[in-house]
Design a protein around this nucleic acid. Sequence first.
DNA 1: AAAACTACTTGCCATATGACAAGTTATACA
DNA 2: TGTATAACTTGTCATATGGCAAGTAGTTTT
Lengths: 191, 191
Amino acid sequence: MDITIFENTYRHPLISQKELELLIDAHKRIHIKEGEFMLKEGKTANEYYLIERGLFRAFVHNTSGNEITTDFFTDNEFLIEVSSLFQRIPSQENLQALTDSWAWKIEFDVFQELFHKIEGIREWGRAWMSEQLFISKRRSINMITTSAKDRYLALLKEKPIIIQQAPLKYIASYLGITDTSLSRIRKELFQ
Amino acid sequence: MDITIFENTYRHPLISQKELELLIDAHKRIHIKEGEFMLKEGKTANEYYLIERGLFRAFVHNTSGNEITTDFFTDNEFLIEVSSLFQRIPSQENLQALTDSWAWKIEFDVFQELFHKIEGIREWGRAWMSEQLFISKRRSINMITTSAKDRYLALLKEKPIIIQQAPLKYIASYLGITDTSLSRIRKELFQ
DNA sequence: AAAACTACTTGCCATATGACAAGTTATACA
DNA sequence: TGTATAACTTGTCATATGGCAAGTAGTTTT
């Protein structure tokens, strides 16, 4: 079995090879069909996933009932709804596969035991969460300080796979604009 | 000593009274003068604070060199830069007092020991961080789905103390608009 | 008391983006 | 293969917000 994905995603100086193996053993490989929901709003998450291959999105409904895509997840990233999983409360987000995918699934109870037993996993987990918080704050700042065109260009540069594979309307709501505007931005850039 | 503030902020079913006392003993009460920096960008945070009384802000510099206020902190809230403290890396944010304040300071090393020793504190910490991530994501969504006027009204409703005490320019950049626009929004609302 | 400075307001005009509706193209389904 | 549906584009017009500059009021400094 190729364990590169685990070595890369769970990388931390305090996690030993033996502890990494405990983590790896806790994951089960699963296949997901395009369109499948990994978590629906109102349900409490009981697991998270490490994506081997595929594309997913998170989305919420705004007050008008429209879908807003809040995040995309792809190869070698964690597909997770942190609030629901760690506060044991119903999710307000949906997690959905946009392509047929392969992922490694780990149950909350299993992770929980390792988290409390192994210092390195606690440190890794806290650092990972800190990083997510940093990324989320940076996203807020970008939303209010850069133009829609610049946000599109930044996404194109950082995660081109999303631009290539996700439908325009999902990308548009992720960027905080209408699909009409995104279509015009594309036209202006590439024509 | 009135320990209400600790009972409220460190509330968690897995934290016993004795463990709470260990936490309380780790905090030292300090006074902060208006304008004082609790953390400067480029420095690594070595402590966090529980605010007893006062108002603080977090701010970053955007690519044009302008200050953007990213958060406000007030009574019974934690004043903390998570990324710097838990990843042990230089901060990109500044933390500054907007009023003379009183707070409870706790050193990273001291918290670290309690975190790894006491399960309840780990659970509390992870839940707190999950909540922060949730709040941050909600902020991103609000930034792109609601008008500046509605964001102002929401802040007025949820944290009126900030509207009352912080200078207009800080509130404006926190809301993602210019101080000119905020001035006009106020005029339209209250005149 | 004068001067400098900060905080906030107002006017004028520019522009990015939205709203709505219609058109085109591609995809899926029967 | 044809039809329905989804994905995307385009046109016209409206509006929220920004940019810049000037003005007023309050506060601090000397």
